[in-house]
Design a binder for these strands. Sequence first.
DNA 1: TGTAAACAAATGATGAGTCAAGTACTCCTT
DNA 2: AAGGAGTACTTGACTCATCATTTGTTTACA
Lengths: 157, 157
Amino acid sequence: MTRSLQSELKKRHPFDSLEQEATLAVMRTSDLLENRLARLLRENGLTLTQYNVLRILRGEGKPMPCLEVADRMIQVAPAITRVVDQLLGMGLITKTQSVHDRRVFEIALTPTASPLLRKIDQPLLDLHTNLLAAATKSDLKTLIRILEQVRSGIVDN
Amino acid sequence: MTRSLQSELKKRHPFDSLEQEATLAVMRTSDLLENRLARLLRENGLTLTQYNVLRILRGEGKPMPCLEVADRMIQVAPAITRVVDQLLGMGLITKTQSVHDRRVFEIALTPTASPLLRKIDQPLLDLHTNLLAAATKSDLKTLIRILEQVRSGIVDN
DNA sequence: TGTAAACAAATGATGAGTCAAGTACTCCTT
DNA sequence: AAGGAGTACTTGACTCATCATTTGTTTACA
């Protein structure tokens, strides 16, 4: 409330806690990485979200329910519906109603999608390598381990 | 092109490279963290971006040009203009044209902003602590170091 | 001096994500 | 065998971020 308290809060060290500094570091780095990836994908007519759906479908290798795809991304349901619509319009996926549960719609890659994905594979791999070139392999493993630990410690909803 | 090549690309290991795995880990973790922070801030009538501008201004302690604020975030210029407009509308900042360079508009916190920021400080600090509670202090330091190294290795634009 | 390049910020159009509500379907209960 | 709860999406309205372009203003240099 008072001016003295206000200036007291102004610290030489820019962060109030190690946790805050780490959070901001993760978010800043992520933004930077996302921008670069998005740029490369845009040159191939895809958004990051669209590509992620395709990547997940390829990884799975068989048709998947929409919401299961959403789960593997951070995406919420309505977003997936729209991405699926876009990819359908591009002819990159098919959507079929499941016979076992007619609430479920399964999506799968079309033959058109495969060459597109393969065309992107190498440049994307190169980009990934370049973006993280400043870190050693061992650091990357450490990074992955710590982040995994962090995520597992965050209870959902 | 052929079906055999396609299935050849399907690996048991879900990631093509350590770098890709690390990138995705950073992005997923960031999304998770952002969601939580955004939720807390929304309860206080702020978006993450708006709060970041206020935080940077408080950290600086004196008026700053818009673009300098943008630089400290990842934000691109047009985004800042709009956030500044929003914060102006809320009465949380002032904007004055610099007398030295009339292209420049400097923004600064109003007295209204300080109590709001202080009100948020403690819950936010607690949230940061909770979100990263699964990692040890030493891991957090390592995390910060590696991410900093990664960011410094990414040439801008 | 005058004119072009560079710069800070604003603007308009577009697109992606989020929330709230709605539809269609399944499963569970009694 | 209803009735109700829950699930898998869908849709519409809205907000926020981004791109491309434009408006002032300053600097550089010819």
